[in-house]
Amino acid sequence: MQIQFENVSYTYMPGTPFEEVALENVSCTIPSGMFVTVLGKTGSGKTTALQLIKGLLKPSRGRIIYTTSTEHAYKCDKQSKQEKQQLNAIWSSIGYLFQYPEHQLFEETVERDISYGPRNLGVTEGAIKSNVLEAMEAVGLSYEQFAERSPFALSGGQMRRVAIAGVLASKPQTMILDEPMAGLDPISKTKLIDMLYQQHLANNWTTICVSHHIDEIWQHTDHFLIFNNKRIEFIGSKQQILQAWQQRQIDIEPPSIVKLALLLIDKGIIKRPLTELSNELQSSEAFARYLGGV
């Protein structure tokens, strides 16, 4: 599903002493089927943008256009009952993983918590069971071992996987991930993002992921979206962001291999521009092989 922001603005608590603009006149197109990484400092507007996409907030101005086989617009003004129904259907197809999702767990057993989403969507009992099974398998939690356990008896990492399974179980077609790797140690971070990327490929998702762990996420990203001070500072492919870094146009810190490449270019060791190296900079292994002369 392609998602397009058209002059979208959002203000919290308008008309009160606490009024705060979170997004200002944002326009961009998020391409369908890609893994999009969203970057930006706290307060830059990126979380607001995510919540608007999921319909948790309503634009103060402008509109959001969702395109699958048909087009649907989420507007700032009043919409018809039929339009709202269609929007609800779209939003139900979007999975949203909040930061520290383990804080949402509430059911008595792991299985009941994971099935909360599909149950709310009105999925049949049989389908719920198979969705839960698939979701648990995807996150690496054995059904036999974990289904009947209390989520609160598990470790932090396991609880997070239960929460992720809970989002997967609704079989989303679009995924929004808000800092999925927050608070994890290095090995767990890589395992988690690799798993999510595998799901992205297997299910043909359009994935929108906010993360400041640029090293772990660089390899999987197709497209970048950078928010700065309530606006969009950059949107583009890996190629384009490499150019932006080469020309020092953006503030965001590049992944370590790009930092290394920039230093080597500055020293004259590498004589090609950064933009020509997008293949070599896919991963540390690839770049090491390139430098090693293989």
Partner: peptide, 15 residues
């Protein structure tokens, strides 16, 4: 936190 929880559970279809 309550606001965030409401949003999180709403996002899972809990009205």
């Amino acid at each position: 936190e309550t606001d965030k929880l409401i949003k999180a559970q709403t996002a899972r279809g809990g009205s």
